[in-house]
């Protein structure tokens, strides 16, 4: 019972499922990217690098990739910065701490599709709460979701709104890991409060958590899809087209599966590079 047989029994379900639902599909998608496969077609032909070459000439892909990078470039620094600020401010004093923590975390929990629709309503150019507020300040109105210049940043704003709380709790975990005696040593040394203490103790101690939070947020931001699909479908005029949405459209609207697979490979390369950084950070923080 304690021998090889039992190990096989313990691991077999996981191994089989891993092969069928992870490794197999991963290899399949890479293989598909070199074919002209179309769903339902009786046969497929090997086309070599054709899909990848086509990609470099595809304006949609170029826009989509650029938009995704802009989106990540906005969401990551803003939501990490705000998350850090929120964590520091909330932990600085016990007053209303629980309330603030719950408030900032709520968007992380809430179904994004549902909240996206709420945002759409709030951002409406005519009767949305946001434009009403802006009008009171003598600004606008802006058609946030239909203005080509604004739409991507609007979606990034929703992404920030959703991610701040997540980053906040990661930073809070980092803060509780800072030894109390270090703060006390700083107090005795003359860096007891405010920015001096932050610079001498808090920030250096948060270093690994910060790097980690940046990477994990970047991965999450790269996977932006829900808000785009339900609010803009990539429009207007591809102004909010992002990578995952392009892949979805190629694969399931146009059924150009070989080409979509090639796009997936590109998407994968980005995510895997980021994930590798994450694993590296994890591994280093553990030793």
């Amino acid at each position: 019972m304690n021998g090889r047989g039992s190990v096989l029994l313990l691991t077999a379900p996981a191994l089989v499922l891993m092969a069928v639902f992870l490794i197999g599909p991963l290899l399949a998608v890479i293989a598909l990217s070199f074919t002209s496969y179309q769903l339902g077609a009786p046969s497929l032909s090997f086309v070599g690098m054709a899909n990848y070459i086509e990609m470099t000439e595809d304006a949609t892909v170029r826009i989509s990739l650029a938009n995704t990078l802009i989106y990540v470039g906005v969401v990551v620094p803003v939501s990490v910065g705000l998350g850090l600020g929120a964590a520091l401010l909330i932990e600085a004093d016990p007053s209303l701490r629980g309330f603030y923590r719950a408030s900032y975390f709520l968007p992380v929990m809430a179904t994004l599709i549902a909240m996206a629709i709420v945002w759409e309503f709030m951002l409406d150019a005519r009767f949305g709460a946001v434009n009403m507020l802006l009008r009171a300040m003598g600004l606008g109105p802006y058609d946030f979701l239909h203005d080509r210049k604004l739409v991507l940043y609007t979606l990034a704003g929703i992404g920030v709104w959703q991610n701040v709380g997540f980053n906040m709790v990661l930073f809070m975990a980092g803060l509780t890991a800072v030894p109390r005696e270090l703060y006390e040593a700083a107090a005795v040394d003359g860096a007891g409060r405010g920015f001096e203490r932050f610079k001498l103790v808090t920030w250096p101690m948060l270093g690994p958590v910060t790097l980690f939070t940046v990477v994990i947020t970047a991965i999450r931001a790269f996977q932006v899809f829900d808000t785009v699909k339900v609010l803009t479908e990539g429009g207007p005029n591809k102004a909010s087209e992002v990578l995952l949405h392009t892949i979805y459209a190629e694969a399931f609207n146009f059924f150009r599966n070989g080409y979509a697979a090639a796009l997936v490979v590109v998407f994968l390369l980005f995510i895997m590079a980021l994930s590798a950084v994450r694993l590296f950070v994890l591994g280093r923080s553990r030793t």
Partner: peptide, 30 residues
Amino acid sequence: RRFRGRDTMFATVLVCLLIPYQAIALPLYI
């Protein structure tokens, strides 16, 4: 447990950890 292939299996788990599920949605669909 100590068994032959444990390290390989764990390495596989780590590699699979890098796969976002959106990337394999297409072959799974097929």
